[in-house]
Design a protein around this nucleic acid. Sequence first.
DNA 1: CGGCGCCTTGAGGTACGTCAACGAAAGTGG
DNA 2: CCACTTTCGTTGACGTACCTCAAGGCGCCG
Lengths: 239, 239
Amino acid sequence: MGTDPLTTLERYGCAVCPTRIVCTARNLDEQLLDQLAECIDTSAVLQRNDYLYRLGDPGESCYVVRSGVFKTMTLTASGEEFVTGFHYPGELLGLSGQATGEHSDSAQALAASTACAIRSDDFPEIFAIGAGQSLLRLIAEREHNDRCLENNLRQSKAECRIAGYLVVLIQRLQRLGFDGRVLPTPMSQTDLANHLGLTLECLSRVFGKWRRAGLIATEKDSITILNPKALDALTCHLL
Amino acid sequence: MGTDPLTTLERYGCAVCPTRIVCTARNLDEQLLDQLAECIDTSAVLQRNDYLYRLGDPGESCYVVRSGVFKTMTLTASGEEFVTGFHYPGELLGLSGQATGEHSDSAQALAASTACAIRSDDFPEIFAIGAGQSLLRLIAEREHNDRCLENNLRQSKAECRIAGYLVVLIQRLQRLGFDGRVLPTPMSQTDLANHLGLTLECLSRVFGKWRRAGLIATEKDSITILNPKALDALTCHLL
DNA sequence: CGGCGCCTTGAGGTACGTCAACGAAAGTGG
DNA sequence: CCACTTTCGTTGACGTACCTCAAGGCGCCG
């Protein structure tokens, strides 16, 4: 693995992290940032298709995406892949591994990506430093996101699901400071359809319809929202 | 509100809680249990249809179900109720309120129920006592459950969804020491259908079919699993 | 150039949603 | 305790949205 891109990050830890404003490090002063960096392993540098962790790995750590995008997936009993989520910078992964002692999904980088590992053993230290509230908030934000997406899945109409997913994704990216008009989507439509519980054909038809209606434009690795209001109107407003 | 049923619980706090083996209190010795009880407000006693918290309430606390069953729900933009979950003893509620500062759902007791409140301000103290790992595990278990149910919703076949929900519910109850053959279901079928993203008619038809096939028996406030293997075979095995 | 993912487009079947009527049960008020 | 009302569940007929299967186009890589 190439270690070059992260040398500065490793040296300065959380202090220079681009996502620190939304992460465990938010609201910490310089001194505490250094202490926090002791608790967090910032060494995970991954290329496209590398795995951050795999199904069955011991679940002693959870992870925060620092840059890039990750896909999490599991397997059905019949061996088919099952995409459980896409994870953008500042989002938490792999927490559920603590429940069973091992990860119940695999996490794969969809582009060159970096991630921080937080060992569950270090949680008490993080709370002792005073960064516990921020970590807790990170967990709560993940929970909040999950609920939104879960509610979205209860809608069985394809257009509602897809629009809802995009709208939630816009919100997630805006939290990071993006304008939310151009969504980086390094995943294949096949994976996206899988994740939404739809067939590729159905997703493709909806995207085609929306393109013709001037609602969105789809590029290779991104989706541009041309008419946010119209998209929002399709979401069934699940709050 | 009647305070009688809980007097002993209030006095002895976590030490006498029937769900302590799965809760934050697990693995604590007598002395620490008393300290933990200081951090946790055990006074919430609710009758059927009482609210534990409401949408928009300040999200300064999360809750652990001590006894009974809770239903969480939110509203669509058009004002319809939207059932986001059913919560059994030892399960965590309301964590996502931390993300936005206010609760994004309401929690209502479906039967006479009790719950403990954990203030987010007390998290550091809980970690200082040494109960942090158990609390973390509680959070992770919630996350794990959510993922299972979320994956289940990706399946659009009604029978898969319903069977999957029941199988996950069995697992959740077994964790509490129940045998998992008789599932307490104080919710209406209307609410259950709503939560599964199906219509009442569809759920009713599937239950009818399963009753005729000798798979389940439905009573007023419970479902008895007569043929667990057959039920499991319908779940699409989402792992 | 050929092969292979990945996406698009079409035709047809099926499962679930919708609408509607009915029945059972539970809560209400006299 | 009994009529009334309301909520909840059952069953049927019908339409439609999505899945399935299939063929073809496009870009990427060897």
